[in-house]
Nucleic acid binder design. Structure first.
Length: 669
DNA sequence: TGTCTATGTCATGTT
DNA sequence: AGAACATGACATAGA
């Protein structure tokens, strides 16, 4: 098997051989050992049943086993599980530990969940049950959320097929249980569709998020105009300013978080299937890019069992964005990718040379060939009238059930189904378009595949007899694209068409990006508005509170001042000194004092600070006309035009003639 | 039937 | 100079 090989350093001629399926092979080998009871070092007792296993495997999957077995070195360890754990629930978990696939039915999923919780099975609780269980047991949910635009152009050949699909699908209730109860005849068709669906949509996350980060958030690389725009929106600082918000919390614009590395793992797991087949007989692989690509295992191994357990192969966890096969491919460590597959020559069913890469692994080649052959499988099945009707009926119900799951990566289901139908009722060329459509779609970024215009373009491309797929035109880098054009001897029309397709596809993606950014920006601005509004309200309330406090304090000061004056009977000199140390402009005490002090000692230089408090009315007092007592009420009348309430008590400790007071008032006015 | 939304496409400007 | 990208404007399909 050919693995990816990278050269780490040209100077030292060191090479790194990295097997991307090694872990899967090891796991499979361990599973075989378990089945043959080879090298097993622990027996797990559940309900009087013993399960042989390897400690290291159990401990690596389960916190419970990890805790219980870490300190045990004795051979032949026997572990009795708690009573809550049943054999019915434990056995699938054990298989999951060795195969990465969890087989379950609606009947035992709760039991499995319970056991997984008790045993602390990693990677299952959040990733699987939190998603599966509500779907199983909350039938009230409408499947409408999964509905998405499927074909916007009636002129597309797919549209007709899709409308027929909708008509058929309308008869299906989408009942979960009924969907699970698949007959033997029906399952192969279902599996084909499921595998197809998975191949289109299942995607390991890291690559997707990475691509997203790169393409969607790197504002530093944007044009100045756009940078201005983003800066205006407060997005110019860093990606983390906006993306987490968009991806995790409030922003509904997209970017569903994907966290689980299992999705990548699934690719590896699935890749191994190409050579070995599925371990479980009744499995229906949901998230298996290669499941359908293995004609050996998928059609043949899915035909037994009373009710078909669904296999959640590490990909059902949470929600992750629907991705095209191209993204699937890119993210797969074996690079069994749509982008590899897009180099398929749909007409010949062979793999076209990809100028961008020198080598193809055997896995890739195998998958590519199986991909190209897959429509034949479907069409051959179509040719059997007896199985066709049933198969389609079950497929439809199964699809309805899958729609009910509301899994984002199933959102293309309708289109998939329509495409499958097309492949069943149309000619071989239509099948080619189908494959091309699967793999097409400029999905180098994280946007949903539109597929409609691409499918039309693919159709045109097939008419143009291009030696490569439309997706190849779009996905190739500039150099690769030009190199490919050099290699391929294209006519003028073909060249124009290819350039046009590439330009339009690039622009389509750019438009999506642009719109998404705009929505993000709007969202951020709305958040900012909301934040500022709440901040303003908060500050207003605070100001109101402070104003009230200030008024209260002024009142207290006035009272204190009057009381002081009344009780102490301060002399003018004393008042002057007093005012000197309480010359705060805001202090009513000081203003009272300063006014009085000025009345007596206008020429005193120490009172200059008070003069500033008093304003222009400081120069109106006529020396020599003062009296020893000042009427506080009159003082209040001339009190610097202060707005604070003042005490108007009857403390007639000072008196001053109103004539002398009124003059500054008029001057000031 | 009109409106809104989503999307594709073209034209144009910027890097 | 040409390619890539961003974005406004317009057209179209579907809800």
């Amino acid at each position: 098997m050919q693995f990816s090989m990278t050269m780490s350093s040209c100077k030292t001629s060191e090479f790194t051989f990295q097997s991307s399926v090694h872990s899967t092979l090891v796991l499979r080998c361990l599973d075989e050992q378990r089945r043959k009871d080879l090298l097993c070092d622990v027996t797990v007792m559940v309900e009087n049943r013993g399960f042989r296993a390897h400690r290291s495997v159990l401990a690596s999957c389960s916190e419970y086993f990890s805790t219980r077995m870490t300190n045990h070195t004795s051979p032949g360890l026997i572990i009795n599980l708690p009573d809550e754990v049943t054999a019915e629930g434990f056995e699938p978990l054990l298989q999951f530990a060795y195969t990465s696939k969890l087989l379950f039915t609606k009947e035992n999923v709760l039991e499995i969940h319970n056991c997984a919780t008790v045993l602390g099975f990693k990677n299952l609780d959040k990733a699987c049950f939190d998603f599966i269980l509500p779907k199983f047991f909350d039938s009230s949910k409408s499947s409408s959320k999964v509905q998405r635009k499927q074909c916007c152009k009636t002129k597309c050949w797919r549209a007709k097929a899709e409308s027929s699909y909708k008509n058929d699908g309308a008869n299906d209730t989408g009942d979960v249980s009924s969907a699970i109860q698949l007959s033997k005849k029906q399952e192969p068709n279902v599996s084909s569709n499921l595998g197809e669906m998975a191949a289109r949509t299942c995607s390991p996350c890291p690559v997707e998020t990475e691509a997203y980060t790169e393409t969607e958030s790197d504002y530093s690389s944007l044009c100045p105009k756009y940078r201005k725009f983003q800066l205006a929106c407060g997005k110019g600082q860093s990606n983390t300013d906006t993306e987490p918000e968009n991806t995790e919390s409030t922003c509904s614009l997209n970017s569903l978080p994907c966290s689980s590395s299992e999705k990548c793992e699934s690719a590896n797991t699935l890749s191994s299937k190409t050579s070995t087949g599925i371990n479980e007989e009744d499995a229906v692989s949901i998230c298996c890019p290669l499941a359908k690509q293995s004609p050996v295992e998928t059609p043949l191994n899915l035909c037994s069992g009373k009710s078909s357990p669904m296999t959640a192969s590490c990909g059902l966890g949470g929600s992750f964005p629907p991705l095209s096969a191209g993204e699937v491919a890119e993210s797969s460590s074996v690079q069994v990718s749509g982008k590899e597959c897009i180099m398929l020559d749909c007409r010949t069913g062979t793999v076209c040379p990809n100028p961008s890469r020198d080598q193809r692994s055997s896995v890739e080649m195998e998958v590519a060939n199986q991909l190209s052959a897959w429509p034949d499988i479907c069409s051959s099945r179509v040719s059997e009238p007896s199985s066709y009707g049933q198969g389609m009926a079950v497929k439809s119900s199964e699809l309805q059930w899958l729609k009910q799951l509301e899994c984002p990566f199933l959102r293309d289901l309708g289109a998939v189904d329509a495409q499958v139908r097309c492949s069943e009722v149309t000619s071989r060329s239509a099948e080619c378009s189908y494959i091309s459509s699967i793999n097409s779609g400029e999905d180098s970024d994280s946007f949903d595949t539109e597929g409609d215009s691409e499918s039309c373009t693919s159709e045109q491309a097939s008419l143009m007899q291009l030696p490569f797929s439309v997706a190849g035109i779009v996905s190739l880098s500039r150099n690769d694209f030009q190199q490919m054009l050099k290699i391929q001897q294209l006519t003028r029309e073909q060249l124009d068409f290819v350039h046009d397709v590439r330009r339009r596809s690039k622009n389509r993606i750019a438009a999506r990006r642009c719109r998404k950014r705009k929505l993000d920006c709007i969202h951020n601005l709305e958040c900012e508005i909301e934040r500022l509004r709440s901040e303003k309200e908060k500050l207003t309330a605070e100001k109101r509170q402070l104003d009230q406090l200030r008024l209260k304090t002024r009142e207290n000061y006035s009272v204190l001042y009057d009381r002081l004056c009344a009780e102490a009977k301060l002399q003018p000199e004393q008042l002057q000194v007093f005012a000197k140390y309480t010359s705060l402009a805001e202090c009513p005490f000081s203003t009272h004092l300063s006014t009085k002090a000025q009345l007596y000692h206008r020429s005193e230089p120490e009172l200059q600070p008070l003069a500033s408090c008093l304003g222009t009315d400081t120069g109106i007092y006529e020396p020599g006309t003062s009296t020893r007592s000042v009427n506080t009420q009159n003082l209040a009348a001339s009190d610097l035009r202060s707005t604070e309430p003042r005490h108007t008590g009857n403390n007639e400790t000072m008196s001053i003639s109103t004539d002398q007071i009124n003059k500054p008032e008029t001057d000031k006015s």
